[in-house]
Amino acid sequence: MSTKPGEIIVTGPKDTDEFIKGVWAQNPVFVQVLGMCPTLAVTNTASNALVMGLATAFVLLMSNVLVSSLRHAVPKQVRIASYVAIIATFVTAVDYIIQAVSLEVHKSLGAYVSLIVVNCLILGRAEAFASKNNLKRSIYDALGMGVGFTLALLCLGVVRELLGNGTFFNLSVLPGNFQPWVIMLLPGGAFFVLALWMLLINRLKQGGPRD
């Protein structure tokens, strides 16, 4: 991933570090390996990946906001139950919103929109971060993780769509006689592409070949 939207504010105040952390150092897909179900299942085209990433990011942001603002009111014993209720609410909302925006997109994502509710990334951030930090930091955290997740999904989606269909966001970019790699559109191809991206990113993190 070459995109580093937060690079200019690296030296900024502490709170914004939470943003960069989610995009790069603790990227939910490539580093934490969370949320594998949508990562492998709906990244067969770049647009699916983008919508899925944005939907997840939205749910993440809203649940982090609510969990963080209610963190003193929710008793410890029932915190997981309330987090799940909050997350389920926003997933339902996102489901309706996507249907209202485009039925086509909703059809191509299938059941995976509803499955955001069990994405461990969201519950994980609620429990590990939002319930222990103030609202501002939680928003930065959710934005960082959300952007990191979306970018990672896009990384997979772009490669899979390009090789599997010869298109980029449904635009034909390769010559007409391009031979599509069917495996890239199947879940098996997602494993290959994910593995290669992880290889590349771990390589970049280590900084060149090891000696």
């Binding site: 031979q179 790699w181 069917v182 495996i183 890239m184 199947l186 191809g189």
Partner: peptide, 10 residues
Amino acid sequence: AFLQAAFPTA
């Protein structure tokens, strides 16, 4: 197996 899954027609 990779080729079979990637290029089933060929």
